[in-house]
Design a protein around this nucleic acid. Structure first.
Length: 425
RNA sequence: GUGAGCGUGGCCAAGUUGGUUAAGGCGCCAGGUUGUGGCCCUGGAGAUCGAGGGUUCAAAUCCCUUCGCUCACCCCA
């Protein structure tokens, strides 16, 4: 039946879905503008090395989820699995560290991850994200979190709660990693395959485990906040203070660790209270070592990414009313032959010059078929042209809602339509 | 990558102890007298039952393979 279909994990965004996308994009752009973020777009593919150096070559994302290939020149390229690394690369490449700091950027771009598809999880998906580079004070941690909070609230996603945690700087993070490793190693014989693997490769990830036994161990497990250096602890407390001052609701979740290696200090995530699996809708954090890791100066950064497909899913649940964006004003129907059609074509041309949204009904159909077509488009008006009208140089204007029609001259028709359709511009 | 469920015309779907032309609804198209939509009536197009192979006299219904979707893991936005 279907000889060709879109590759696994990819979807067509059909006309009736576009409305959600346009809406989200508009909202997001408005927020970006309010917070003074400028848009950046980076290439769909980058040198593979960019991601292994930033995201981390031992993370699952890089290890088993990238779309990588060699180009004809033998360079290994990778479809970007996330946006932060690319933005940092661009920041460096174009010397944005020489601009007044911090630099605020946002993006809306497709991302690629080779994963098993599920609802809300695709191989090509889209993210809106912001990055703030060149300021390491807690004030911008607050700003970024505030931005995220406002956007989530704007979309009416009340069931999503802000979870935050601090991983500390590199040193604190390493100390903590050590502590986790020691603590769980004691129980290593009882760990599942997945969990022992995690413990070996990326100990912090074990805090994400859904295993009941492992979860029971969390209670007495080392707490990341206890391993923060003085400076880390200080910024963490400031951030919480700022949040409290603004009455931004947050939940300190010391089990919150992220899957990308570059995160330091603040990490946060919007998760639903009754968490399903593909349920995180927005997540981010600070990445102070990243730019340097890419060969640049030591530039701190913080940002977040929001999954647009996941927002769309949520909006669909809300039963939102959108205006039909492509509503035509007038459909022109013909009764007769070439002469009538010729005049109809020219009439459409003249009305379009006045910015009226007008289309011809399909001329191969009978008048009944043409009217049905106009009805299906819920066109508020129909103009009918027949031999009688040609003779008198008049037009029949039918109001499809009131079910009334009158025969008028072009001037009157044009003036009327111009007036009626003015708010559709 | 692991485990489970599902896959019938554009959409929603009946039908599975294997057996004549694979229901129905929506949508689409055309008519219901000569130049007009929406309601109603009538008719029509459209499915090699996801694909490939096998078992059988006979399969949408059984078996195998494969593709896709969904769910739980893994992971993550």
């Amino acid at each position: 039946m279907l000889v060709m279909q879109s590759p696994r994990g990819t979807v067509d965004i059909l006309p009736n879905e576009q409305i959600y996308w346009r809406y989200i994009e508009n909202v997001v752009r408005q927020f970006a503008s309010q917070y003074s973020y400028d848009q950046i777009s980076t290439p769909t593919f980058e040198s593979t090395e960019l991601f292994s150096r930033s995201v981390g070559q031992f993370t699952d994302i890089v290890k088993k989820e990238t779309y990588s290939f060699d180009d004809r020149g033998g360079h290994s390229l990778t479809l970007r699995p996330e946006g932060t690394a690319s933005v940092c690369r661009s920041y460096l490449q174009h010397g944005m560290h020489n601009q007044p700091q911090p630099v605020r950027l946002f993006y809306i771009m497709p991302m690629y991850r080779y994963e098993r598809p599920q609802l809300g999880r695709y191989r090509q998906f889209h993210q809106f994200g912001i990055e703030l580079l060149g300021d390491d004070t807690a004030t911008v941690d607050f700003e970024v979190i505030e931005f995220a909070t406002k956007i989530i609230a704007f979309f009416g996603l009340k069931q999503f709660k802000l979870n935050i945690n601090s991983l500390g700087d590199k040193e604190s993070r390493n100390l903590y990693r050590e502590a986790i490793l020691n603590y769980f190693s004691v129980y290593s014989n009882n760990l599942s395959e997945d969990d022992s693997r995690r413990l070996e490769e990326n100990p912090l990830r074990i805090l994400d485990s859904k295993d009941k036994y492992v979860k029971s161990l969390f209670a007495k497990a080392p707490n990341s906040l206890d391993y923060l250096s003085k400076a880390s602890k200080d910024r963490w407390e400031k951030l919480l203070m700022y949040l409290r001052d603004s009455n931004i609701e947050y939940y300190v979740n010391t089990q919150l660790v992220r899957g990308l290696d570059y995160y330091t200090h603040t990490v946060f995530e919007f998760m639903p209270i009754d968490g399903g699996s593909q349920s995180t809708i927005l997540a981010g954090g600070r990445y102070d070592g990243l730019v340097q890791e890419l060969g640049g100066p030591s530039v701190p950064g913080i940002g977040f990414a929001m999954g647009i497909e996941r927002i769309v899913e949520e909006l669909k649940k809300q039963d939102m009313q959108f205006e039909k964006s492509n509503q035509v004003d007038v459909v022109i129907c013909c009764i007769g032959g070439e002469k009538e059609i010729r005049k109809a074509v020219n009439t459409a041309y003249k009305l379009r010059n006045m910015d009226i949204k007008v289309i011809l009904a399909p001329m191969s159909k009978s008048i009944k078929g043409q009217m049905r077509y106009a009805g299906n488009l819920s066109s508020p008006y129909v103009v009918i042209l027949g031999s009688e009208e040609i003779k008198k140089d008049t037009y029949i204007l039918k109001d499809m809602i009131k079910n009334e029609q009158k025969e008028i001259k072009f001037e009157i028709l044009a003036n009327f339509l111009a007036k009626e359709c003015i708010d559709n511009l």
